[in-house]
């Protein structure tokens, strides 16, 4: 039914507009929020340090799988030595930023959304408004900043551990020459590739953090409302991340 599709499109457009306006409101509060640096540090801890375990484990396993699959594929062409460059490019440019973003949305994003949603449901945000404290500045902005600081760092850690995972499989298990592994990587990976990865994780960080705090802050003040907000955070973050991934990849493919 085109009518329903049109409604869906309109709703998405309206929501996107509301989210962008919320972003401006957040950005306006950043300078003041930085004065309360202790709040930002606490949120970097929540978003980043607490996600370390899942990111490092996932990075290790993804890297190891890359090592296995890459080795099998390259073996057909007799180019096992290129495993280093294959793993590095795959991780740094794509898997690192994207998988980290998806995991972040699942762990930190849902935590942010449910935290804010609960504060909304228990009137804590209204209470702050009543005490003449802007809840966006006090509660939302530090969480947003925490997310965008944590994301690129997490993606870098993911890629680094992934490369070592690939090396573990390729060199230690499969017998690829260690020297070739690293030297081919070094000659094949350029600073542009690393930059592309950093730009991606930065963009994903902004998107996922914004979506999480928006959904949580505007959640309906009921139990179902909070649950819905967390679900929507994950779904919207995932779709937006993959969409941005395509955009940025195309941008760098001049």
């Amino acid at each position: 039914m085109p009518g329903e599709l049109r409604n869906r499109l309109v709703t998405t457009l309206v929501e996107t507009g509301a989210m962008v306006r919320f972003l401006f409101r957040i950005l306006a509060g950043v300078p003041r929020a930085l004065l309360r640096f202790d709040l930002v540090v606490a949120q970097v801890y929540n978003a980043g340090a607490l996600s370390l375990v899942i990111i490092m484990l996932s990075g290790l396993f993804v890297g190891m799988v890359l090592g296995l699959q890459g080795f099998q594929l390259l073996q057909r062409f007799g180019s096992e030595e290129a495993l280093g460059i294959a793993a590095a490019i795959g991780l740094v440019k794509e898997l690192g930023p994207v998988v980290t973003a998806l995991l972040f949305a699942g762990r930190a994003g849902t935590a942010l959304a449910s935290e804010l949603g609960l504060m909304r449901a228990t009137d804590q945000l209204s209470a702050m408004e009543m005490m003449a404290v802007d809840p966006v500045q006090r509660v939302v902005v530090p969480r947003f900043l925490g997310g965008i600081i944590a994301m690129p760092l997490l993606a870098a850690i993911f890629s680094m551990i992934g490369i070592y995972g690939a090396q573990l499989v390729g060199v230690q298990f499969m017998g690829v020459d260690s020297g070739s592994f690293w030297s081919q990587m070094r000659s094949g990976v350029d600073l542009v590739d690393v930059t592309e990865g950093i730009v991606k994780s930065g963009a994903f960080g902004i998107a996922c953090s914004l979506i999480a705090v928006y959904e949580g802050y505007h959640a309906e003040p009921t139990a179902e409302g909070v649950g819905r907000a967390t679900t929507r955070t994950v779904v919207t973050s995932a779709v937006t991340t993959l969409f941005l991934d395509y955009l940025i990849t195309a941008m760098f493919l001049k």
């Binding site: 228990t122 009137d123 804590q124 005490m131 003449a132």
Partner: peptide, 19 residues
Amino acid sequence: IYALRQRMGMLFQNGALLT
């Protein structure tokens, strides 16, 4: 409005303490 609210105090239904 914020200045006015500083002269008011409100007790919410469930306290609404910051957890």
